[in-house]
Design a protein around this nucleic acid. Structure first.
Lengths: 239, 239, 239, 239
DNA sequence: CATGAATGAGTGTTCATTCAT
DNA sequence: GATGAATGAACACTCATTCAT
């Protein structure tokens, strides 16, 4: 009721820190790391420049924090959403349409990866990888690896249930992601151009089909790759 | 035949242009586009700053030329090397070891893509894609698309000979490249960390194996449904 | 009460602003607007270059401020000095020697106009009028118009007292100024060459004499233009 | 008969010199002296930059030549046109309407002075007077002085015929020009704003009226005290 | 702790001028 | 004598960073 109420925008230090990080993310994403100006970040965060330096040693330190947080957040988002599906994947009922499940997971992953933040984080990472090699490893460890692990675990479960024929789940997970990404990077110009839902679904379908041709069990259950993945019949996972 | 050859550094204006482009490539690659200094480029090229501006309108113009030339060169190199293999691919003898052929091609492509120039071009492209969207399209059109087309044609020939079972050679080519790349980007930290030959071969093998699991003929049914690589009919990434 | 006065050069931001403006005036005056360097201005002002840009958006903005301030100051100076005389002009006693009064006013105006600042402002104005047309209007509005108005009012008062025969005081004021300037611009090479007091007085006398021949009442009081204005007998108004 | 024909644009050196001077005039006028670029001048003249330096030592030398030529040309134009009127002035018939004659002369002078070239030459002169003081004297000697002398002579002739009452024709000429210029500089923003013919005529009328009020004969007393225009005896503005 | 004001080093770019042809 | 190509010096302007308050 007293004292802490009348701060201009954000109440405490930690709130200010958050505001700075948010602003930094936006500015880094818009202008890239080298062109990003601390001035703009400070203004956007509603603080003054020295305050930024009070919270972060350096422009680089700020950048690294932003990237780390972004990677963590991205992985968290994708994995948590993924876990809900994961449960469904264990349902004994959904045996036949692995294709549909794969497509659903693929869309989920891509939705996150192709989100504005996802792309721009990746572009920033690429851009500065040469000058901050350790940052790349950190971000991959925080973002890419957990997601891949989750995916690998899920695929392994499917394999255990005889729905897939997988030797190395990690490799399979990597290849799954590579296949479903398909031409999306080129089509979206690395995320700078919006991409229509149909194109996304088509890319996913093509990827899933090939994935299944490679990893579906050879015997009896060839139906999976004969019938096209049912994704097209579902309205949309997002819309 | 004598005397006029080794004046200061480069003989004519074209040689100077080349020197500038070479230096620019190096500096852009080392520092990134925004941090690259025309001063350093000029010094490295052995010319003075205004000479750089005499050959190129802008820093951006210089950058674009570097990127375009790099893409062209990369594609040329990869395709020409590819054509020598291409001839071998038509040999009736090499029927059984498609795997070996695919691996050879994969290594060839990767050798080029993972070369210092290849990676750094890609990193630069990623870094500036947001601010120069058209450059991305240009570079992809000059570099990625021709390579993919050549690969698609080659795959289509294999399919016509019944060695592969491919519906859409363009998609197959994309997927082939995606699969053989595998975890290499992460392992090499986007090309900033050297990668051993064994790791490369292993990645290629994993990729080729999955590709073959997906596209090797299931039975003896040959080449029936193979469509020619309909590159012209697909909008390409630029359209 | 002591100690805080003479820190580096100027105490507060406003003092620094003044220092910058002063330095800018000097540099603009010496080198002209296009050749003037912000570096020199900053050095002369005892601040660093970014500080200049912290106070003024642009070189042009700085220039405009200098010009506006100069015009305002010039007008203020001339009008305030003018007002002291104005009072005297209303004295019933000083009836006969309008010539002396006119000469005194003329010297006062010229002293200001021919001061270093006056001339150089005018030269700068001429120099940049083509590229900053609005600046000219602004400066005239701030500097020339008020002076002319004050002069017109004063002349009108003289006319009301029957000492002059004036139809349009504004025109008369303009013509008065044009006449007393005479050949001074040419003689002083637009203010780049010092001009002796006698030459100044002579020019004023010639101007005043003609002015009176035109505007003194035709009747009786022709003495005014018969006797030379008594200016020459007074030592100097400025000394 | 052969060889000299196939030069690209202009046949001889002198023609090229003229082309350069023309181009230089245009560029100086448009951009001002400091901002004028030799490149543009060369391009406009249809020659190459070193050719400009082959004809003129310096940018400054080129500028001075342009200014001198401009002043000479301007004076020539005005004086020659003036001479035609001058003849008419001696006609015994036109006794009564000195006002008309003065107005005619005034318009003639102003037309030239207010022409684009006239104004811009003057602005250039003002702009660079501080840095090239001698140029000012030269230009005044070439342009202003002859015109004033011609005008003074004409006024003297009128005085000799008893149509004016003039003590010093030189001073009268100066004052005549000052009066007819009136507010034109301010109205045209130093020539950067077009001015309508009516305004011009109005200014001229006001000036001529005042001039006549000052110099028209008070009584019948004719030309007694008129001294000849003693131009040579006055130090002129240059001395 | 947060700020307004200041800074040194650096940017891309342009210009008048001069070689080698 | 005329040119294309080259240059050194300078420009306005910006930035990440740090005092004094």
């Amino acid at each position: 009721m007293a004292g802490t109420e009348h701060r201009p925008i954000s109440r405490g230090r930690v709130a200010k820190r958050e505001a700075i990080l948010d602003a930094a993310m936006r500015v880094f994403v818009e202008d890239g790391y080298p062109a990003a100006g601390i001035d703009r970040i400070a203004t956007l965060a509603g603080v003054s420049k020295p305050t930024v330096y009070n919270h972060f040693d350096d422009k680089e330190s700020l950048f690294r924090t932003v990237m780390r947080d972004g990677a963590r957040l991205s992985a968290t988002k994708i994995i948590s959403a993924f876990d809900t599906l994961s449960g469904a994947a264990d349902d004994p009922g959904g045996r036949a349409d692995i294709a549909a499940q794969l497509a659903e997971v693929a869309l989920l992953v891509l939705d996150c990866q192709l989100s504005d933040e996802g792309w721009t984080l990746q572009r920033l990472l690429y851009a500065e990888a040469a000058r901050m090699p350790d940052l790349y490893d950190e971000v991959v460890g925080l973002g890419g690896v957990p997601v891949r692990n989750a995916l690998a675990g899920w695929l392994a479960r499917l394999a255990n249930r005889g729905l897939l024929e997988i030797e190395d789940p990690d490799i399979a997970a990597s290849q799954f992601m590579a296949l479903i990404a398909g031409d999306l990077p080129a089509m979206s110009a690395l995320g700078t151009r919006p991409i229509g839902r149909p194109a996304l679904v088509a890319a996913v379908d093509a990827g899933v089909r090939t994935f299944l041709r490679a990893f579906a069990p050879r015997r009896r259950s060839r139906a999976a790759q004969v019938r096209p993945p049912a994704t097209a019949t579902r309205p949309s996972t997002v819309g």
